[in-house]
Design a protein around this nucleic acid. Structure first.
Lengths: 205, 205
DNA sequence: ATGGATTTTGTACAATTAGGTACAAGTATT
DNA sequence: AATACTTGTACCTAATTGTACAAAATCCAT
């Protein structure tokens, strides 16, 4: 009896539900329905019910879902019921913005180090972080057991850095470099490239 | 005889192909195959052939695709065979990073203005831009006919700003605020939220 | 030059995956 | 007690992806 494999596409929607539920909770709401949640996130109520029901029967007929209970469950499912250490590679504008970003704290992530290969930048202070040399990145990641990295280096360097990250044990990469990365099957990559995202919309203009 | 509707999911992959092809072109390559392109972007060769064939017969048996020809075609399909004006709303860290980013130039986009509602920031210089007041944003967008905006304001302000953008004629929003936006059906939104993207990967760790 | 081997596309067909519809059953409200 | 609300799921439909191959183009050995 193995656990049913959950499709990626469903996993991809859960963080969106989580974000909306957190917002509802912050507003003081205690319960919600698939209908209401669906209106918030722009997804059909049936879809939401089906997605959630993959993991158990979390709702109650006539009432809907307890927001707090669903938050707890989703965090548990997504494994963000804990704090993950994350490193940033690249101390440019994006690296800066990420280092200063206050939105990781409550969503399961904590930046622990920033690396750059530019000797000019190494040693400098970015917020509460001191930029470290990329040369020590691999061993630092290994030693700390870090599994998640955000990659903000220029495209030509990205694959090489990704290889080092993977070698050091990183299993999830948020890639800001405008290039597709080649990584082993057990490593996940999410891509953030503003031009690519914009190009997904111009077709419809 | 209407043109066959192309699925969103295919449109979403085209910018990735475009990016990889541009890279190959920069490296001096003249032709490629669905096989080779697929290895670069991590998508099956059959999928790539089928995607491309939606728009015409761009390849040649035995040879593959002319990179330059395919680049031209993809740019035309995605309507990035021109330069789109884009505005940035929010002059925080992300707004700064976007304003300084050099990666829009060659990919069909040009930032024309940056807005913020903080009177402290209005009038300041960010790169070659002078931060303008959000109050004049609507009329400025209307006057210039801008169709694309990047939204980098705090979550609580995002929906309100989005409403103004839509009212002013914006039809594509790249939303960096960690919240789902409610917009009319003829307006496209792409979401960039690092925490959400990270949460899509932690499940697999 | 030539012919067989190789490469590669575009597509027909099959299989799989994702999403929509509808409703029984439970819960709440009046 | 009747009405309204809401879930979870069975069933159906649509969308997406994979497989396989004919046809065309190229390559290569002689």
């Amino acid at each position: 009896m193995s656990v049913k494999k959950i499709p990626d596409i469903i996993i991809g929607r859960l963080p969106v539900y989580l974000r909306a539920l957190q917002r509802m909770s912050d507003m003081g709401l205690k319960t919600t329905s698939s209908q209401e949640l669906g209106e918030h996130v722009g997804i059909s109520a049936a879809q939401i019910r089906k997605d959630i029901s993959q993991f158990g029967e979390f709702g109650k007929q006539g009432t809907g879902y307890s927001i707090q209970f669903l938050l707890d469950k989703l965090r548990e499912i997504l494994k963000v019921d804990r704090i993950w250490d994350v490193v940033v590679v690249g101390a440019g504008d994006i690296g800066h913005a990420l280092a200063n970003y206050q939105g990781f704290q409550d969503r399961g992530f904590h930046i622990t180090a920033i690396f750059d290969n530019d000797k000019e930048k190494v040693g400098r202070q970015i917020g509460s972080f001191t930029v470290e040399d990329t040369e020590v990145m691999g061993e630092r990641i290994k030693a700390a057991g870090v599994k998640i990295a955000m990659l903000t280096v220029p495209a030509p360097a990205a694959q090489e850095v990704a290889d080092v990250l993977v070698q050091a044990g990183v299993r999830a990469i948020l890639n800001y470099a405008p290039i597709s990365l080649n990584v082993p099957g057990n490593v996940k990559v999410q891509y953030i490239d503003p031009s690519t995202h914009l190009q997904r919309m111009t077709y419809y203009l």
